[in-house]
Design a protein around this nucleic acid. Structure first.
Lengths: 202, 202
DNA sequence: CCTACCGATCGGTAGG
DNA sequence: CCTACCGATCGGTAGG
């Protein structure tokens, strides 16, 4: 208990401050990318100095790592990716796209970082390589399940269609961002999936 | 004629130097993006100082504009985009993808710039918005032509399939770049088109 | 968490 | 095209 009557709660204030910094970093990354963002700008929005920020995250890279970790945790939580591959998983994919369309900031960071991280020496390169591989495997596995149940249109290769599904979502996001949301991202995704299946998703 | 016997050719040397600078800029953009590139690094590779580079391109932005202009000119030349929308146009798209796969550097610049230019205040923003719109219109028009000839699989909406085609090419490029070419970009594109048509492309 | 600082790098300009 | 410079900004550190 401090003399002003407030309880600091041990490390609680520190954890809140860390979360605050991460949230702010996401917003700044969305505007300027990772390389284009400065610790000073992020710190300014949080209300501390850039040296103060470095007290919580010792390097610029460690802050990026924290941003990516939190994103993974949130995705897993929200979409309950524990859902086994299959029809329900594809429905979740559409739900995720719908969520993203309502939260352009998230899409923005992601698209920007993914493109930056194409460079092999980018600090997020391995993260995105892993992320894409997992997304592809999940999509392919889901389509394989449908194929076994004869719910996939004849001639559709689960391997290639799964790769295309992930690529399509990515490409649609970039176009959707580029022209300020005029592209019907969710409609195009639904069309692709409906066209692939013999039994509609919903 | 100079005393060393060489002919400078009036403005020829200048034009060659300009081309040299643009070519070098493309390579550096591919490695570091636009914002991440410095005039000093580009100038160093060309063998002049950054102040010397600014003699040819007065600002960093004007160099970017020159890069994009040359890319457009080359695309139009190589793929003879004068080809009217239709079956042949789609075949050209596959040929372009095959060409790109053999020239990763070009894909790299493009993917990086497109993602950077998502930001409304990026100097290449308008360029990419225009580029995407033209690509979409061209794809949609081509699919409409096929639809009239009953060469499109029933149920395929030319509007959505055209949007998806452009998005797919973009998304495939990013994944292909991310994992060092292990993704079968051309195969996936061919599969998508074959699946769309009732009469094979080739 | 802050003040104060470091070395490095940036785009651009002056003046030739 | 170059030398020499400017003001601004960067990530990171010392020392408290």
């Amino acid at each position: 208990m401090r003399h002003d009557g407030h309880v600091t709660g041990g490390y609680l204030k520190g954890r809140i401050r860390r979360e605050d910094i991460i949230t702010t970093a996401v917003a700044v990354y969305a505007e300027a990318g990772y390389h284009g963002s400065s610790l000073r700008e992020i710190a300014r929005r949080v209300g501390i100095t850039h040296a103060g920020l470095l007290y919580y995250f010792p390097t610029k890279e460690s802050l990026l790592a924290a941003v990516l970790e939190r994103r993974d945790a949130q995705d897993t939580e929200r979409e309950r990716l524990a859902v086994p591959p299959g029809r329900e998983a594809l429905a979740h994919l559409v739900a995720l796209a719908e969520y993203n369309v309502r939260h352009p900031g998230i899409v923005d960071v992601y698209a920007r970082l993914a493109a930056e991280a194409v460079a092999a020496d980018h600090p997020a390169h391995d993260y995105f390589e892993r992320h894409y591989r997992m997304a592809r495997d999940y999509a392919v596995a889901s389509l394989r399940v449908l194929a076994e149940r004869q719910e996939l249109r004849p001639g559709v290769d689960p391997e290639l269609a799964g790769l295309n599904l992930v690529a399509l979502m990515d490409g649609l996001q970039v176009q959707w961002l580029s022209n300020g949301g005029a592209v019907d991202l969710v409609g195009a995704l639904r069309f692709y999936l409906r066209d692939l299946l013999t039994v509609p998703l919903d």
